[in-house]
Design a protein around this nucleic acid. Sequence first.
DNA 1: TATGAATGAGCCTTCATTCAT
DNA 2: CATGAATGAAGGCTCATTCAT
Lengths: 198, 198, 198, 198
Amino acid sequence: MASPPTSPALRAKYDRRRAQLVLDAAAVFARSGYDQTSVAELTDELDLAAGGLYHYFAGKEQLLIGICDELMEPILTTARQIAATDDSASDRLRALVRAWVAHVVEHRDHMLVFQQERHVIEHGAQWKGVRESRKAFERLVERLLGEAIDEGAATGDRRVLLSALLGMVNHTAQWYRPGGRVKVDALADGYVQLVCRR
Amino acid sequence: MASPPTSPALRAKYDRRRAQLVLDAAAVFARSGYDQTSVAELTDELDLAAGGLYHYFAGKEQLLIGICDELMEPILTTARQIAATDDSASDRLRALVRAWVAHVVEHRDHMLVFQQERHVIEHGAQWKGVRESRKAFERLVERLLGEAIDEGAATGDRRVLLSALLGMVNHTAQWYRPGGRVKVDALADGYVQLVCRR
Amino acid sequence: MASPPTSPALRAKYDRRRAQLVLDAAAVFARSGYDQTSVAELTDELDLAAGGLYHYFAGKEQLLIGICDELMEPILTTARQIAATDDSASDRLRALVRAWVAHVVEHRDHMLVFQQERHVIEHGAQWKGVRESRKAFERLVERLLGEAIDEGAATGDRRVLLSALLGMVNHTAQWYRPGGRVKVDALADGYVQLVCRR
Amino acid sequence: MASPPTSPALRAKYDRRRAQLVLDAAAVFARSGYDQTSVAELTDELDLAAGGLYHYFAGKEQLLIGICDELMEPILTTARQIAATDDSASDRLRALVRAWVAHVVEHRDHMLVFQQERHVIEHGAQWKGVRESRKAFERLVERLLGEAIDEGAATGDRRVLLSALLGMVNHTAQWYRPGGRVKVDALADGYVQLVCRR
DNA sequence: TATGAATGAGCCTTCATTCAT
DNA sequence: CATGAATGAAGGCTCATTCAT
C-alpha cells in the first residue's frame, strides 16, 4: 500500500476518496456478499482497476475494517453522550434506541456486511478493536437496561432483556426499508415499549 | 459422489454415517467458520481423508444444505402441529416459542452456521428449498401473532412484533449456553411476555 | 491384482470372463471415451463393483492394453499368413486389405479406442509391445506395396502409397457401419483399386 | 478470466500474446498430449505462472478450442474460395488438396492435438462450432468429388472416395516432416492421382 | 470372488496481492 | 495516482487404486 499524500490539500482529497470507497464498497458487499465478491468484481463497480484499491487500503480486509469502524464508532459515541445525560433511564433508553435504530437503518449496508462476517470478526486477532467497540456498546445498553429495571420502568432479567433488544434492533437491517409504512422513530419506540412496559 | 448403496442394511449404515457427518460438520463450521474451513481441515476433524467426504456429499455446499435442512424441517413440522391445536393464540404462541427456543439451543451449531451463510442462502438458486422453509416458518409465526393481537393478548404492529420476535429468538444462538442460569423455558416465556403483555 | 485361479476349470471361466470384460470395456470406451470414463462409470456398465475390476486387471491401463492386443495380434497373424502365400503381390495385397478392413469393421470399438489413445500408446514405455505390433504390420504392408510396384501393379512412391492406404483403411472406423449400402469387401476392393490401378 | 483490455493499443498486444499462447500450447500438447499435460506443466513451458493462463483463456479447454479454430477456419475459407472458381472439378480438387495438405503440414501440431481429442470434440456440446466447420469442409470436398466423378475425372463411389481422401490427407500429420524427400505439392498431387486417375 | 468405503495424490481454477509501466 | 499483467498459494474436487469384510 502506498502512503497517503503528505500535502494537506492532497491529503484531504485522498481522505474523501477513501471514505467514498468504503461507502461504495459497503453497498457492493451488502448486495453481493463480502466473501463472494472478488477484488476484481469490487473494483469494477468502484470504477478502479484491480491494483488501484491498494493505494487506499492495504488489503481487502482493511476495507471491511473501514466499514465496521464507520458502523461502530459513531453510534458508540452517540450512545455515550445519551447515556451521560440526566434524563430518566427509560428516557435515555428510548433516546438511545431511536439513535441506534436510525443508525442501523442509515447504515444498513454496513450492518449487513458486519453480520455476514460476524464470525470472522469475533475470532480474528486483527479484529480486536471492532470487537471492543461492540462489547462497549452492549455493556452500555446493558447498564441502561439495569437502571431502567431499578427505576421500575422495565421488569425481567437484565441479560435476557439485553439480548432481546440487541436481537430485535440488529435484525432490523434484514428487512427494514426506509420510506415504508413504519417510520424509524415509531419502530424504535415500539422496540422500547416491548422492553419497558410492565 | 458415489451413489448410496442399494442393499437396505448398507443403506442404513450409509445414512447413519452421513447424518453423523452433517452433525459433526455443523460443530466444526460453527467453531471455525464455513468459509474459513477448507475441506481438508474439515475432513481432518471428521477422521476422513480429503476425498472421503465425497462418498456422502456431492460437494461442500451439500453439507451446508444438510445442516440447514436439519435445522429448518423439524421446527417447521413442530410449529405446524402447535399452530393446528385448539388452544388460545397466546397459548399456542408460547408453546411455539418454547419449542423454537429449545430447537435453537439444541441446534446452536446449525443456527450459527446458517447465520454465517445467510447471505449466500438468501441469494443462491440452489437454496430455494431452505429459503421456502424459512419463509413458511415466519409466515406461521406472523399468523399466530396476528391472532394474538386479535385476541387482545398482544398489542402493536404485527410486522414489528414478528421482526422483534424473530430477532430476539434467533439471536439467542449467539450467546446462550445450556446449563447456565437461565433455563430454556424461562427464556422462551420471557420472550413471549415481551411480545404479549400489554 | 489377485492372481488368476490355478485350477484349470476355474482358470477357463476366469479367462472367459476377462475376455468378455475387455470386449465390453471396448464398447464403453469407444462410446464414452477412455479418458472420459472413470473406473466407477465403467464398472457400472460392466455390472461389477469398482474394486471387482482389479481381480482381472492390474489397472485401467491393462484394459487398454488388452483392447489393443485384441486389435493388433489377430490381424498381424493373418497378415503374415497372407503375405507368405505364393499369390501375386496385388492378389496378396487385395487379400490383406480385405482382411484388414473386415478386422477394422469388426473391431470398430477397439479401433476407436486405439485411435483415442494413440498419443499415449506412441509415447509410453509400457506400450512398446503394442507399438512393435503396429510397426510390424505397417512394414508388412509396405513390403507388399513395394512388391506390387515392382510387379507393375501399382505406381508411385511406396512411402506415399503406404501412408495413403493406412490413412484410408484406419479412417474407416470413424464412419463405416456394417449393414449399410457399401459391403466390406467392396470397400476393401475400392481401396485397393485406388492404390493399384495405374 | 480477466476481460480483455478496452484500449486499442493494449488490446492489440493482448490479442497478439493470446494468439502466440495458442500456438505455443499447440506445440506442447502435440508433443506431450493434451490430457497428459497439466496446466502447471503447460504454463511452465509457456513461461507463465500457473494462474497467468487465465488472463487469456477461461479454461484449459478454451485453449483447445483456440487451437481447433486456428486449424479449421483458414482452410475452410480457402477451400470455399477454391471451390468457387471456374476451373474444372479435377483442377479445383487438385488445388484444394494442395492447400489442404500444405495446411495440415504447416499446422501439424494443431492437427495432432485435434486428432488426440477427436472423441471429445465429436461429443461435447461446447464443440458444436468446431464440429460444424469440420462437417462443412467435408461436405465441400464431397461435392467436389461428386463433380469430378460427373466430369469423368474420377470413378468409384463418392462416399468411399471422400473417406479415402479424408483418411489419407489427415493421416499425413502423423508422419510427414517438412524438409524431407517428398515435397508437399508432390504429396498432394500423389493423393489426387490416387483418387482421380481412372 | 465380490463389495464399496476409504485413500491421497493430483487436477483445474480462483483470487488477493504485487509491480513495472 | 492509476493501470492491468502477472504471481503463486490455496481451494474444492476427481479418480485410480486398495483393503477389510
